[in-house]
Design a protein around this nucleic acid. Structure first.
Length: 544
RNA sequence: GGCCUUGUGGUCAAGCGGUUAAGACGGCGCCCUCUCACGGCGCAAUCCCGGGUUCGAUUCCCGGCAAGGUCACCA
C-alpha cells in the first residue's frame, strides 16, 4: 500500500504542514509549576452542577499555580448545538465567580485560537493526513448496518464489541479496493490503525485516583467522521497538545477512554498531559444511587440555584467542601480569608462518587448569608426579586428604610450572634412577607378562643408605641397575670397546674394576631416596624 | 458480560499497622428563652464480607460481594 498516495487522495485540498502548525502554537512560556487547564463543554445550552464542579477544580488549579484556564467549545456534533449556549456557559460560570483567561468569546490572549473545534478542521485534517501517510490511519467504508451486525455477532459470541483486530475489515483492504471505493464515492470514516494489545496493562498515575492500571487500546476508533469532522478523542489529543494543556481534569466517565487517548497521543508524537478523573455527583434514588440526571433532578441545573436564590458563594463553598476534604476545616479556621487563598490540592480530591446533599448546602447557605450586612442582603434580595420575584415582592423594596430595618431584625444585626433565618432569597422573601402584607391565614393558637379576645383587647388598651422593649414586655406580663396566665416562666414551670398557661401563650396570641405566624423574631421590634396604625389594625381584626 | 474505579456512622469525610476511630451536616435530648433563630452542652450511629501476613489489622495481601463508570461516525 502506498500510504503517501492514499493520503494525497484522501486530502486533495492540501493541508498546512505539521511544522507550520507547531510553530503557530508554540509551547507557553510560563513559570515552572504553572498549570494550563481547560473547560471543554459541548454547546448544548445546558450547564449543570457537574460542570461547575469540574470548573471550580480547573479554575483553582490554574490560577493557584499562576497558570491559565481556557474555554474551548467542543462543537463537533451538530446535533447537539444550541444557539447562545456559549454565552450561557460563560455567564453561568461568571455568576459563580469563575473567569477564564482565554477562550471562546473571552477576548483574552488568542494565540491558541480558534477555540471552536469546528473552526479547527484543517488542523485536524493535517494530522489525520500525517497518520495516513504513516500507515497509522485508514479509511473505513463499513456502513452503519454492517457495524451493527458486527456488534450483534460479537455480543452473541460474548466477545468484546468494536472494530478491532480481525473484525476490522477495512484495515486490510488492498490498494485497489480502497481506490475503487473512493472513486465510486463511497462514504467513509477515517480510523486509527491501533497497535495496542489489551492483554498488556500499564500502570498509570492519575492525579486524583492515584495509581491505576490501564490496558492498551486495540480499537480502531474513528478519528474523522464521514463529514470530515473529528471525533472527541482525536480533537482532544490535538487541541490539548496545541493549546499546551498540562493537566486535564475531567469527569470519570472519561476514564474508560483513557487507553484510546494514550495511544492517540503516542501515535501523533505528542507528550501526554497529566490527567485527573474526578468523581461525579450522585443522587440517592430509592435503594440505589445514580448520577444526577438532567431530566429527573432539577437541582442539577445551575438555573435552579438562581431561581431559588441561592447565594452564589454558598454554592461555591459547598462545591469546595465536596471537592477537597481539607477545605471545610480550613474554612472554619480561616472564615475571613478569601476562598482563593485555600491551598487546593488535586490529590485531595475525592476518589469516589459523592452524594449531593441539599441539607448541607442549606446549612452553608445560612452561614454565608449570615455574613452579609443588611445592605448587602438588600441588594442581593432586590436583584433576585427583580428577576424571579412576584410583583408584590418587588414592591417590598419601595420603602428602603423599612426593608433595611426588617433585614437588620431578621439577620440579628447588632446582636452578639447573627440569626440564621435565611437560606435562600426565595425563602427569605417568603419569610419577611408578613411585614409587607397582612396575613391571609393564621397558624393555630394554643390559647383558648375565649381568652384570646380578652388578651387582645387588653393589649390594645395598654399599647403604646412609645414603650421600649422592656416596658412593652412588662405590660404583656401584666395582661398575662390578669387573665390567669403565669407572668414569669419560672412560676409556671414550678406549678403549671396553677395557671391556664404562661406569658409564652400570651405572647403567642399577640404574635399570631400581628403576623399570622407562631414563630418570628422579636415581636416588639416587629410592631415598631409595622407602626402603630398597622399593628392596631391587625390585632383589632382578631379581637372578635 | 468484558474492562476500569470505589467501598469508614443516614450524608460529606479524617485517619492508612497499636487511636476512647477526628470533624461537619442531619437526627434526638438538655440548657438559654415570651416563640423562633442564634449560642452552649450532651446522646445515638461507622471501618462491606471471608481468608491470610502480623504479637496486633479499618489500615498490608488474596478472594468474594456490592456500587458506579464504560463498551457510538455523542461528548
Amino acid at each position: 500500500m502506498d500510504y503517501k498516495a492514499l493520503a494525497e487522495r484522501l486530502f486533495p485540498e492540501g493541508t498546512p504542514t505539521i511544522e507550520s502548525i507547531e510553530q503557530k502554537y508554540p509551547p507557553r512560556s510560563l513559570e515552572k509549576g504553572a498549570e494550563v487547564t481547560r473547560l471543554a463543554p459541548s454547546p448544548t445550552g445546558f450547564i449543570h452542577l457537574g460542570n461547575l464542579f469540574v470548573a471550580i477544580a480547573n479554575e483553582r488549579i490554574a490560577h493557584q499555580s499562576g497558570g491559565v484556564l481556557f474555554l474551548r467549545i467542543e462543537d463537533t456534533d451538530l446535533k447537539r448545538k444550541v444557539e447562545g449556549a456559549v454565552e450561557a456557559v460563560i455567564s453561568a460560570l461568571k455568576y459563580f465567580d469563575i473567569h477564564f483567561d482565554e477562550g471562546a468569546e473571552i477576548g483574552g490572549d488568542d494565540t491558541y485560537a480558534p477555540w471552536y473545534q469546528r473552526q479547527r478542521a484543517e488542523i485536524y485534517r493535517a494530522y489525520a493526513k500525517k497518520l495516513v501517510e504513516e500507515g497509522r490511519a485508514y479509511p473505513c467504508f463499513c456502513t452503519e448496518e454492517e457495524l451493527t451486525a458486527l456488534r450483534e455477532e460479537q455480543t452473541s459470541k460474548k466477545e468484546t464489541t468494536g472494530y478491532y483486530g480481525r473484525y476490522a475489515r477495512c484495515r486490510n483492504l488492498s490498494e485497489e479496493e480502497v481506490f475503487e471505493k473512493l472513486a465510486a464515492g463511497t462514504p467513509y470514516v477515517l480510523r486509527l490503525r491501533s497497535m495496542g494489545d489489551p492483554e498488556v496493562k500499564h500502570k498509570f498515575h492519575d492525579e486524583i485516583k492515584g495509581d491505576i492500571t490501564v490496558q492498551e487500546n486495540d480499537q480502531d476508533i474513528v478519528i474523522l467522521k464521514s463529514d470530515g469532522i473529528p471525533t472527541y478523542h482525536f480533537a482532544h489529543a490535538i487541541d490539548d497538545h496545541l493549546m499546551r494543556t498540562t493537566l486535564v481534569i475531567r469527569g470519570e466517565e472519561w476514564l474508560a477512554s483513557l487507553p484510546i487517548h494514550i495511544e492517540l497521543f503516542s501515535a501523533l508524537g505528542f507528550p501526554l498531559p497529566h490527567y485527573g478523573h474526578n468523581c461525579s455527583l450522585m443522587k440517592q434514588d430509592g435503594e440505589t444511587r445514580r448520577k444526577l440526571s438532567k431530566r429527573k433532578d432539577p437541582e442539577l441545573s445551575l438555573e435552579f440555584y438562581r431561581k431559588e436564590g441561592y447565594y452564589p458563594r454558598a454554592v461555591k463553598v459547598y462545591m469546595l467542601t465536596l471537592l477537597n476534604s481539607a477545605f471545610e476545616e480550613w474554612y472554619m479556621k480561616n472564615p475571613e480569608a478569601p476562598l482563593e487563598s485555600f491551598p487546593f490540592k488535586v490529590s485531595k480530591m475525592s476518589k469516589s462518587g459523592t452524594l449531593f446533599d441539599l441539607d448541607k448546602l442549606n446549612d452553608i447557605s445560612k452561614n454565608e448569608l449570615a455574613r452579609l450586612s443588611e445592605h448587602e442582603m438588600f441588594a442581593f434580595l432586590k436583584d433576585w426579586a427583580e428577576e424571579f420575584g412576584t410583583e408584590a415582592q418587588k414592591g417590598y423594596f419601595a420603602d428602603e428604610e423599612k426593608m433595611l430595618r426588617v433585614l437588620a431584625l431578621c439577620m440579628g444585626v447588632g446582636g452578639k450572634k447573627r440569626r440564621k433565618d435565611f437560606t435562600t432569597a426565595s425563602q427569605a422573601m417568603e419569610f419577611i412577607r408578613f411585614f409587607f402584607e397582612r396575613p391571609v391565614s393564621r397558624e393555630p393558637y394554643r390559647c383558648e378562643k375565649a381568652d384570646r379576645a380578652g388578651i387582645l383587647s387588653d393589649f390594645l388598651k395598654s399599647y403604646s408605641p412609645e414603650d421600649d422593649s422592656a416596658a412593652w414586655f412588662s405590660k404583656v406580663k401584666e395582661i398575662a397575670g390578669r387573665h390567669g396566665f403565669a407572668a414569669e416562666m419560672k412560676d409556671y414551670k414550678a406549678a403549671p397546674e396553677a395557671y391556664k398557661g404562661s406569658v409564652a401563650d400570651v405572647a403567642e396570641v399577640l404574635r399570631i394576631a400581628a403576623t399570622g405566624k407562631a414563630n418570628t423574631p422579636d415581636l416588639w421590634t416587629i410592631l415598631q416596624i409595622l407602626g402603630e396604625e398597622e399593628t392596631r389594625a391587625r390585632i383589632e381584626g382578631e379581637c372578635k
